[in-house]
Design a protein around this nucleic acid. Structure first.
Lengths: 157, 157, 157, 157
DNA sequence: TTTT
DNA sequence: TTTT
């Protein structure tokens, strides 16, 4: 029986993507994403609850992540839950859950354009990976930006 | 048989929300939201396709929309498809589809915080409704911000 | 700015799919899907509310729909909202909203396998289109069944 | 910044729900759900991949699960990812991911009604928990069935 | 027009 | 009518 396994997230990166270029030619990016939920407890106090997700992106997606995503970037993600299982040294069954990203979209870049005093968005398409930080946010997607789907050929340029 | 009717949108408001305070005490906000899809046609030319959605928000949600959403605001929306049907003067069956919003989240305001040199985000929580415009974007959600669910009691302050 | 336009439905077909084989070789199936919501009103009475959706499927998807879906079939649908706009004879702006299906999954057929006394599921892959009816439900997807994504090559056999 | 953390699953229970009635009066049900994905590998061979999800349901939801869900039941689930973190005896950081169910819907029960020769669905509302098995599927939801949302008061009877 |  |  066919099933459905779908995850939808909106959150911010906890750190810059970790990207590995494999010998096979594949590229994989590991991204940690925080989704924060705010609510009021029974006493009316505001409570924040943050869940951290381990995302896995491949190939064209990973390259876009490498170039445009930085610590703090806000993204919309669509993916699926994917777990690895193994036995540890003690012989215990272990399981690690990851989100395999199927597509993602950068959010909020419009606001950066208006607000960034140093004109950071002008280096779109050539985001300086050596000095990513909050004050100098990652470049917005270039004009061909859009959803980044799975596959090799979806680099937006 | 129970069904599922769910809509998820990320897009930008086409204009300021239209808010009506009904005699019953209910508040309703009508919002037009653009979702833009970009792809390359067979000739490799970039094509943009925009779909316009008619959103309907009620009560607490509508009040938050009135106070914080402006033309151009980027939001995440979860809702359901809801149609009205009637007969027009010619006796033809007519149908109008709307998205009944169940919750929404403002996007991108974090970036405004860091980047806005004029301190626009400083008026968070007291968005000046009389002078909303692009240069002075709608205030970001106040510190109690979060998902705006359905119901009367979810004003974020 | 990239957007997101996603619809998720679970419901039942109101009638058999209407399938047209175009001269271009494309195939299009129009399907009406009911999603029913049940709740209790303020008096504790059970109320049912049914929303009807106009679905549009193309090519491989449409062929699967033609062969396996029937009035009453329960499906999971993922798609996007897509509207056509035009002017009617009176010069009024008109808009028709459809759900462009991106993938769908047949539901509940597993149970048919176990329960169907006449062995209806044995004719999977050769569903008799001339005599679809309730007593003889549409065949379940064949063993290669699964999600039916967009594209020409996804016929499950 | 508000986030979004949403999971949508359609799958089958791997075993009967495990339900605990806590001293506090709360009820919790643990459910394992399989979502199966089928595709063809590069050689054209059909491959099935099953992902197992650990679901957590509370209170009214858990009671409905206890009464109506059985090994093999097909359900639609909407929830969120929720992880527990701790240190094991070796001092290693450990993390367990669960799906906190926000609502679920039973699928496919219509087909059982028609197909089950032994009239199993006649015990709807009083599913015999002592002898659940595949040949005798769990009762379909009673006529007041529908989405099972979170909360105490949503038992469908 | 479906389904329960 | 938005956004890039």
């Amino acid at each position: 029986m066919a099933g459905v396994n779908k995850v939808i997230l909106v959150g911010n990166l906890g750190r810059d993507p970790e990207v590995r270029h494999l010998e096979s030619g594949s590229v994989v990016a590991n991204v940690t994403l925080a989704t924060t939920e705010a609510y009021k407890d029974r006493n009316g106090n505001r409570v924040e609850n943050t869940e951290w997700h381990d995302l896995e992106m491949w190939d064209g997606q990973a390259k876009v992540a490498e170039q445009y995503l930085r610590k703090g970037s806000q993204i919309f993600v669509e993916g699926k839950i994917k777990s690895d299982t193994w036995q540890d040294e003690q012989g215990n069954n272990r399981k690690k859950v990851r989100i395999r990203v199927l597509s993602f979209t950068m959010l909020g870049s419009r606001n950066m354009d208006g607000g960034a005093p140093g004109g950071n968005s002008s280096n779109a398409g050539q985001a300086d990976q050596s000095t990513p930080n909050k004050a100098q946010p990652a470049a917005s997607m270039p004009s061909s930006g859009g959803n980044i789907d799975d596959g090799e050929d979806d680099l937006p340029f």
